[in-house]
């Protein structure tokens, strides 16, 4: 573990806590894409399949349970909780996110580190996570301005993988044979997709107004 990865995990944790806070306390998911949340639930479900078969550390297992629990409960809230569901913007959240799942699965079957069931699904989760934010970014474009909590959520979610890139650079220089091109490229693509959002976020943030 290094400071970059810890900062990345804490940023990721903060993003799900901000979203849970918004949904649980003010019972609103306005501006939040259910489709992105569904994709993230699939990302964690396929990435943490080894949670019971391979123990890495208490921290690792605990964080996996937190991310699995939070992503599925957010989907549940947005789909089935009456008050929250009422604030879901179904008409605007129309990105065909299932069209992202199949290409990621095919790509994982073609490009992976090991051709085993767990490894292919793990690689699939990497590719899917790289594009999972697209429905949310499209929804953002349509709803124009969003409340600060949603803006913070997207900012933190985009930032965590950027910190992971620093972690990979650090590990590359400190650990022999630490080379994971697939993870690195997927992580880079994922972070670059936020570039546009980061630009506007910092513009508005510096301006002191909400994110538009």
């Amino acid at each position: 573990m290094n400071i970059f990865r810890l900062a990345g995990d804490m940023t990721h944790l903060a993003s799900v806590l901000v979203l849970l806070l918004k949904i649980h306390t003010i019972k609103s998911c306005a501006g939040v894409s259910l489709r992105t949340q569904e994709l993230y639930a699939i990302v964690f479900a396929t990435r943490y399949l080894d949670i019971f078969t391979s123990f890495v550390s208490v921290y690792n297992t605990f964080m996996k349970l937190v991310f699995l629990g939070s992503s599925f409960s957010i989907v549940w809230y947005m789909r089935y909780h009456k008050a929250v569901h009422r604030t879901y913007d179904r008409e605007q959240d129309t990105f065909r996110h299932w069209f992202l799942v199949l290409p990621c699965l095919v790509l994982a079957l073609l490009i992976h580190e090991k051709f085993t069931f767990l490894e292919v699904l793990w690689t699939f989760s990497l590719y899917l996570e790289a594009v999972a934010i697209l429905p949310q970014l499209v929804l953002l474009q349509r709803t124009r301005n969003i409340d600060n909590l949603t803006g913070q959520y997207i900012f933190l979610l985009g930032g965590y993988r950027g910190l992971y890139i620093l972690n990979w650079i650090y590990r590359y220089f400190t650990e022999p044979h630490f080379v994971h091109w697939i993870t690195w490229i997927a992580g880079l693509v994922q972070t670059l997709l936020y570039a546009d959002f980061f630009y506007y976020y910092f513009l508005r943030f510096i301006g002191g107004r909400g994110v538009e």
Partner: peptide
Amino acid sequence: EEAETGHDEL
């Protein structure tokens, strides 16, 4: 910290 799948990151 290496898991059997080689993945020690979240």
